[in-house]
């Protein structure tokens, strides 16, 4: 296993970079999108509510692979999209639907008194949401967001299906050239742990830190 790692170290390192990059982009973008659609679900506009609901239900209930394939094989005919981009976009949309639900649940569990207090104090509804409600909602949502983020990193292996150059793709190729699938997949498994374990630890740390601030 060690010799397999050292002789393919460069490939694994590049792949690790792609997986990390895709995960970071998708994490940030899906958090922003997810929060946006959580907000669209609670604003007093029927149209916005319906749009948000439709978005969430579509992307939450379709397999990630199909979303990715759609961008890789169909959307690319209109705008050129390579495997890495298609995979990262799919990952973002898919995860954002779950994050929207998580953030919405967080918003709902912040008491109505917080909104009334802020509105009676003269804050606009946007100020109330941004300064009072969302920070508290995120604090509540952190454990569940942590799960979403870890799933996101693992789901980034979907890039392999569209030749996205990620860890899984490289594992497939190394396995194919060395005929040692077993160790190839174990090596990339460990690379995934290098991302997910610190991420998990950081989310736990954030959770306890924010709890202290309550």
């Amino acid at each position: 296993m060690i010799s397999l790692l050292t002789s393919n170290f460069h490939s694994f390192l590049v792949a690790f970079g792609y997986t990390l990059l895709s995960s970071i982009i998708a994490l940030i973008a899906s958090t922003v999108l997810g929060t946006l659609f959580a907000i669209l679900q609670i604003v007093p506009s029927k149209t916005a509510n319906v749009i948000a609901r439709a978005y969430i239900e579509v992307f939450r209930n379709i397999p990630l692979l199909i979303i990715v394939m759609f961008f890789y094989l169909v959307v690319t005919k209109i705008v050129k999209i390579g495997g890495f981009t298609a995979g990262t976009i799919g990952l973002t949309l898919y995860t954002s639907a779950f994050i929207a639900e998580t953030v919405r649940a967080g918003i709902n569990s912040v008491g109505i008194g917080q909104t009334e207090g802020a509105r009676a104090n003269g804050l606009s509804s946007w100020q109330t949401l941004r300064i009072i409600i969302l920070p508290q909602a995120f604090k509540i949502a952190i454990p569940s967001l942590g799960n979403q983020f870890i799933n996101l990193v693992k789901n980034s292996s979907i890039l392999a299906f569209v030749a996205g150059g990620d860890l899984m793709y490289t594992a497939n190729n190394v396995a194919a050239t060395t005929f040692d699938s077993f160790n190839s997949y174990i090596i990339v498994g460990i690379f995934y742990l290098i991302i997910t374990l610190p991420l998990n630890y950081y989310m736990k740390f954030l959770e306890t830190k924010l709890k202290g601030m309550a």
């Binding site: 094989l73 169909v74 005919k77 299906f161 497939n172």
Partner: peptide
């Protein structure tokens, strides 16, 4: 060089212009 999962996917990728 892009390596896809099977010939079905590879053909689809060729048709999509990848």
């Amino acid at each position: 060089v892009l390596a896809l999962g099977d010939y079905g996917q590879a053909m689809a990728a060729l048709k999509a212009g990848q």
